[in-house]
C-alpha cells in the first residue's frame, strides 16, 4: 500500500473517535434532560455542570480530530 493512501485511511479511521465522542455528549445531554424533566427546579443549577461534562467528553473526541489532522498535514 502506498504511504499516502495509508495516511488517508488512518485519518479517516481517526475521525471515528469523533463519532464516539458524539455518543458521549449525547448521553450527557440526554441524561441531563431526563433529570431536568423529573426535577425541573434543580435543572438550572446543574446547567453549567452538564456543559462542563459535555466539554470534557468533546475534548477527547477532538483529540482524534487532531490525530486525523496531524496525519493529513504533518506526517
Amino acid at each position: 500500500m502506498e504511504a499516502e493512501a495509508a495516511k488517508f485511511l488512518g485519518a479517516g479511521l481517526a475521525t471515528l473517535g469523533m463519532g464516539l465522542a458524539a455518543i458521549g455528549v449525547g448521553t450527557i445531554f440526554g441524561n441531563f434532560l431526563s433529570g431536568a424533566l423529573r426535577n425541573p427546579s434543580a435543572a438550572d443549577g446543574q446547567f453549567a455542570r452538564a456543559f462542563i461534562g459535555a466539554a470534557l467528553a468533546e475534548g477527547l473526541g477532538i483529540f482524534s480530530l487532531v490525530v486525523a489532522l496531524v496525519l493529513l498535514f504533518v506526517v
Binding site: E4, L69, V70, L72, F73, V74
Partner: peptide, 13 residues
Amino acid sequence: PAAEAHGSNFPPF
C-alpha cells in the same frame, strides 16, 4: 497533496 507537504501547507500548523 504535494509530496513535500510538511506542515506549512496547513496554516494552523
